[in-house]
Nucleic acid binder design. Sequence first.
DNA 1: CGTATTTGACCTGCGC
DNA 2: GCGCAGGTCAAATACG
Length: 331
Amino acid sequence: MCCFWTMGTAPVCLDLMVGRPMDHEPSPVRCTGVRTEADVASSACDRAPPMTNDEAKILEAKLAQVSEENRKLTEMIAYLYGNQVSRQSPDGEGQQRARTAASPTPPAGKKRSQESMDASHSCDVEISNRNVGTGEAEHVDVDSPLSNGTCRRIKVKKVCTRIDPSDTSLVVKDGYQWRKYGQKVTRDNPSPRAYFRCAFAPSCPVKKKVQRSAEDSSVVEATYEGEHNHPHPTRAGELPSYAARSGGSVPCSISTNSSGPTITLDLTKNGGGVQVLDAGEAQPDMKKVCRAVASPEFQRALVEQMARELTGDQKFTDALAAAILRKLPDY
DNA sequence: CGTATTTGACCTGCGC
DNA sequence: GCGCAGGTCAAATACG
């Protein structure tokens, strides 16, 4: 099980190793969720000849030291990544919002002015970027408090989905009903950008912008603004991440909001996932996110979720049975 | 005929 | 003030 974060062009792979046999002695390395050379060495020790107690203690000490370094590196990666993404405001959302918020007296009689008023009450912008097709997940929180103290969090989430390049509909299936209200060709991208509103509830403030990636026409970027004020039409309680179904699975995504960090693992194209919520902190903290990922509770929940998903997928069980049969000598 | 989508026009904010 | 770019509106059109 790998959890990817992209940092520029260099993907970071955190091997959670959740599928490993449980009869192994639990080690601090596994608790961090990152496979290291020391961890590999410890596995090799299973086949090594017996050693003295002193040698074993030395190895244990080294292992603990490596584990601690590994944990610090993991936190550092998450911290650096958060800093990088926070500097990359997607599609100028932050700038646009700053412009809107700076408008002291919006013109009356326009729906647009009401939306500007709504945005002006926001001080926090959450930005999430998930590259669904490639299994990369990105996320960061951007806090920009206003001076007037009237803060309301507006969630901005960016989701990348891989679709058929011949598909020009710009439809990202996320489980919600969307009503298209506009389309525009932007300067930095030859592909048109489509504007959607949530059509499930008339009062739902959520908007969605969908545009093909300028670099890869098979990838569409969907930017969600706001949060739904109604339950999910089909599967209440899940995050709006169903784009994964149309293009591929997402190994992992991490989000943080006012209620604390949320780790979501979409294990299959058919949905499902593990959410570990840490609502104890009001301020988002990437270190806490890393610790949540590394916690035994998280990994146990992950294993259980994987087992449920795999055993519940008839196609998977059929394919597995067929593969086993092919390995039998008489098959 | 009702609903959803398309598309050109319009509005607003920003930079020069 | 003007031009540009992003976002939205609303009439026209398509579709079931």
